[in-house]
Amino acid sequence: MIYRFRIVLDNDSEDDIFRDIEIRESDSFEDLHNTITQSFGFDGSEMASFYISDDEWNQGEEISLFDMSDGINKTKLMGNTTLKDLVHEDQTKLIYVYDFLSMWTFYVELAEIVEEAEGTDYPNLMFVHGQVPDEAPEKSFEAENLDDFNDYEDDLDIEDYDNLDFDENWN
């Protein structure tokens, strides 16, 4: 079977930037990663991860290009995970992040599953819309409410060293 995906760049402009691709369900997430980077004009040399997403695009389980874990928490790797392992009619959305310094972020959605067309090479770039900007769109990581930063309010004044419970000459 062939998966048809629409990959949309998360950007702040009014112009939509997306690519429609076809790829075999038996291909790996690394194959999808390579197809996305090539179709958007990246060289593919930066770190990247896919994240399983729900219908509201909330980030879930990670599928990483390389194993950066400390061995305690096992991470799924793109090269070892096929698309059909995690993507299907009930799970159609992924978030893809390329280059963690620039944070190119893409919304990847399974549009349909079709039969393989004879004579077509896969992966297949079906449609291109929009020009990729020279720099990644700015991301805002501010809390919606500054009170979100005060989850651990302890009424301590960091400037009041005399009343803090630590020995500053411990060494």
Rank of each mutant, 00 (worst) to 15 (best):
I113F: 02
L110T: 09
T75E: 15
E61T: 13
G60Y: 03
S49Y: 04
A136W: 04
F29Q: 00
L65I: 06
F5R: 04
F141P: 09
G71D: 02
I23W: 01
T37G: 07
E56S: 14
G41I: 10
F42I: 00
V114T: 05
E135W: 05
D43K: 08
V132Y: 08
E89I: 12
L156F: 08
F66I: 06
Q131C: 12
E30G: 04
Y98S: 00
E112T: 08
L125N: 08
I2K: 00
G79D: 06
Y107Q: 07
H33Y: 08
D154F: 09
A136K: 03
D165F: 06
N58G: 10
M1E: 11
F18P: 09
L110E: 07
G119S: 09
W57K: 09
D31A: 15
S69G: 01
F100T: 01
E153D: 13
I21Q: 00
L156R: 11
K139M: 12
G41P: 11
T92P: 05
Y98R: 04
N145K: 10
Y161F: 13
N124C: 08
R4I: 00
L86R: 05
Q59D: 10
R6N: 10
D16R: 14
L110F: 06
D16E: 13
E138Y: 15
I7S: 02
N73I: 14
L32P: 05
